[in-house]
Design a protein around this nucleic acid. Structure first.
Length: 364
DNA sequence: AAGACGTGGCT
DNA sequence: TAGCCAAGTCT
């Protein structure tokens, strides 16, 4: 029996009926759980990689990446030794690219400190880069069946509704309380299944956007939110702030079957990925040609492309672009002339330029 | 504490 | 169309 902190005991004592959730929830999970590759084979490494991929990312989006990643890098040692550019290529299009950098940094630490074996202790897991409170709990419980809570957005939503709580779930203090409650709810013999069942319920039944499918819920009878008719209003979150908007002019420079690309800085947005050269603001075709002249090339043909936009979480790019066929010139420092095969095998381009990059096969 | 950090799907 | 938001972490 895991010892509970005194505050935790008092907290769950206020909601003793929450202890009735695990029974029906696990019975539902046993019937309805999706078959997922990291569930079929829940080795610590596979669980770890899946949890990192699933951070702020839907299962359907992560699925193809997971299979490819595990095939390319079957062990933690392989991950530790991998070429960082290959890692970015394996992550291309998944977003939040720091995740894969941290994954490798953590793999190297695991090889050094624990001979390549992922630890099973929360404190050791949470000390690794990219593994926060949620992920440490998820790995400890799912891979090692340790009774540690794994409270993600799904669980916050499910618990808010079960409790009919209007507390702001983005507040760390509220998350902390939810973690304490989730901790107390864990049946120690099936910790991993219970945590996954809570998340699965949130993903499949207790849906966000005011659309819970309460008629399908195995713990409907225990849910204060549905009893009070407010489940669809929960959880409560503060309104989002407005995004910053940036105008960009993108240069698609093409010369003899190659396109000019440059690597983004090591830190910040899309760090380390490759991109089309661009300048801030919208400029004319003549001004764009002048940039090429400055690099030592002559524009043979200049074609304005349709405007495109890309929405990030915190900013928006409004892009216009010129496709310019030009004479050969040496790539400036930090730039490369990339051909088709490099693009398909080594160069990781962010989806932000997809409106233009999708045409590269025809242009090269 | 609040903002940076991607992307795609759904309403 | 525009907004919401998903198995969060780091600074």
């Amino acid at each position: 029996m895991i010892k509970m902190k005194k505050q935790d005991e008092e907290l769950i004592a206020q909601h003793p009926w929450l202890l009735d959730v695990s029974g029906p929830l696990l019975a539902w999970y046993d019937r309805q759980a999706r078959i997922l590759p990291w569930r079929e084979q829940n080795t610590p490494y596979r669980v770890w990689v899946s949890e990192i991929m699933l951070q702020q990312t839907r299962v359907e989006a992560a699925l193809p990446y997971f299979e490819r990643f595990m095939q390319a890098l079957p062990t933690i040692k392989d991950l530790a030794d991998a070429d960082p550019q290959l890692l970015l290529k394996l992550w291309e299009g998944l977003g939040y690219y720091n995740r894969v950098r941290n994954l490798q940094a953590a793999a190297r630490a695991v090889v050094e400190k624990w001979d390549g074996n992922l630890p099973d202790q929360y404190d050791q897991l949470v000390s690794l880069p990219g593994i926060g409170d949620y992920t440490a709990g998820a790995i400890a419980s799912i891979a090692y069946n340790r009774p540690i809570p794994a409270v993600d957005g799904n669980v916050l939503r499910v618990l808010s509704r079960l409790l009919a709580s209007r507390a702001d779930v983005t507040q760390p203090s509220v998350k902390k309380e939810m973690r304490s409650l989730a901790q107390a709810m864990i049946p120690s013999e099936r910790a991993g299944d219970f945590n996954q069942a809570l998340m699965e319920l949130g993903a499949m039944v207790c849906l966000p956007n005011g659309a819970p499918r309460c008629d399908q819920c195995p713990v409907y009878h225990l849910c204060r939110g549905s009893q009070q008719g407010i489940a669809h209003e929960l959880p409560v979150k503060p309104p989002k702030k407005q995004r910053r908007s940036i105008d960009l002019t993108v240069f698609i420079l093409i010369c003899e079957g190659n396109v000019l690309l440059r690597q983004r800085p090591k830190k910040g947005l899309l760090a380390g990925l490759w991109e089309f050269p661009h300048v801030e603001g919208w400029i004319t075709a003549e001004e764009a040609s002048r940039w090429v002249n400055q690099w030592g090339g002559k524009v043979l043909d200049n074609h304005a492309l349709p405007k495109a936009q890309h929405i990030f979480s915190h900013l928006e790019w409004h892009m216009t672009a010129y496709k310019m066929l030009c004479t050969s010139f040496p790539a400036p420092k930090g730039y490369i002339w990339a051909d088709r095969s490099q693009l398909s095998g080594q160069i990781a381009l962010p989806s932000a330029f997809r409106a233009y990059s999708k045409h590269l096969p025809e242009w090269l």
